[in-house]
Design a protein around this nucleic acid. Structure first.
Lengths: 213, 213
DNA sequence: GCTCAAATGGGCCTCCAGTTCCGTTAAGGG
DNA sequence: CCCTTAACGGAACTGGAGGCCCATTTGAGC
């Protein structure tokens, strides 16, 4: 394992940080433009104005580089709007995801990243963490709906958020078409309907363990 | 374009058919075992007991080969069970998808195929057709529910079926975890709840054009 | 069962992604 | 401001994926 994501770097300041930023930006651009399989680390180096050797030494492979890119992306938080009603919050979430996936650059980028994650365990782990962060950011709006009494106690808030994204990603990855706004609204409505019906409700026993019910 | 999927073959019988079958089988196995990116056409040829040149000549690239594999898979229909109730039918569908995705070979194979489809237009098109066939097979059970009066007229039957699969694929592709039976049941219930709430209902105007409502 | 071209397969070649080597640059501590 | 060495970058090297040539096999029509 000669290539590290970035953990034990001894000298992370100045030039090193500039190189990392330039390479990650170039990697994102090329990933979006050309897709996962046509990606060449030498191309990235050229685009970033950096020596080919540097890219190979620090990241070593495309999946490693993508994993690092994901770690970077996970740190950039998107502020979430709050409308005060479950429908509105989930619709806002759905439309945010939809706009991201249908944006030419971002949509292709996510597609390529997911493809990369299917090929490499470390990248898959980085992707899992990325979505965990995003879901944690939005789960509170479902929790608020529970607190307001809009949903049953014991509702799995994170699962509701996942239910909003699922149809949008499904459409992108299997049909190959980016979702449109109507898809987003339908996804949000479907999640609300299912949550209201108690589909995402788990019962908790006296030991605090959850069981689906 | 030297490589054709299989259209204009002049001599498709005997050896040619055997070679095609052997190569597609080997491709499926290696795709499931090693993933999309580590796939080498020479490996496939060796495994299939076929000349490397033949594979390169007839398919030319990994995406082309995957596209052909998908066309083959689309033709193999899985019989669908009918329980007479919407919940039961959708649960059967969800569990079928779930069992497929959590089967070691099939799950990895689908993952790899989807990755391949993100990298190549023709493969994406083949994948789209594959799911179209599968969805067409299951949509009638939703239509029957509409006919029985369980769901509103104007319900988009195919969209209901997609809603069942979406969470299962979403989980596999973004979290990297195969769905379990409880996920399948939840997906089916969520789709039913959303369908009952009229989320997948479209209104048709006097010109026959559909509008989401 | 004979003929002819489609289809296959072994061996050779080419080219470039990935690696190695080593001299150069510039963080970071004192 | 200077020294040490982590980090970078140019250039040359190499293994193997992908492509080509041509002899051989075999499907299909008669």
């Amino acid at each position: 394992m000669s290539a590290e994501g970035d953990p034990g770097r001894v000298r992370p300041g100045g030039r090193t940080a500039r190189v990392r930023a330039a390479v990650l930006t170039a990697a994102g651009d090329l990933l979006a433009e050309q897709g996962f399989d046509r990606l060449d680390l030498a191309d990235i180096a050229r685009r970033a104005g950096v020596g080919k050797t540097t890219v190979y030494r620090r990241w070593g492979s495309v999946p490693n580089l993508v994993a690092d890119l994901l770690a970077e992306m996970a740190e950039q938080s998107v502020p979430r709007t709050e409308t005060g009603a479950l429908e509105g919050d989930l619709q806002a979430n759905a439309r945010l995801v939809q706009r991201t996936l249908s944006d030419p650059r971002q949509g292709r980028l996510f597609t390529a990243i997911i493809a990369a994650a299917t090929c490499d365990t470390r990248t898959a782990e980085a992707l899992r963490r990325f979505y965990e962060v995003r879901i944690d950011e939005w789960a509170p709006c479902v929790q608020q709906a529970v607190d307001r009494g809009e949903l049953l106690a014991g509702t799995d808030c994170r699962e509701v958020i996942r239910a909003v994204s699922a149809p949008l990603y499904y459409r992108l990855l299997t049909v190959g078409q980016a979702p449109v706004e109507a898809d987003a609204d339908r996804a949000a409505q479907a999640a609300v309907a299912a949550a209201r019906a108690g589909v995402f409700t788990t019962q908790v026993d006296e030991y605090g363990r959850a069981d689906s019910g």
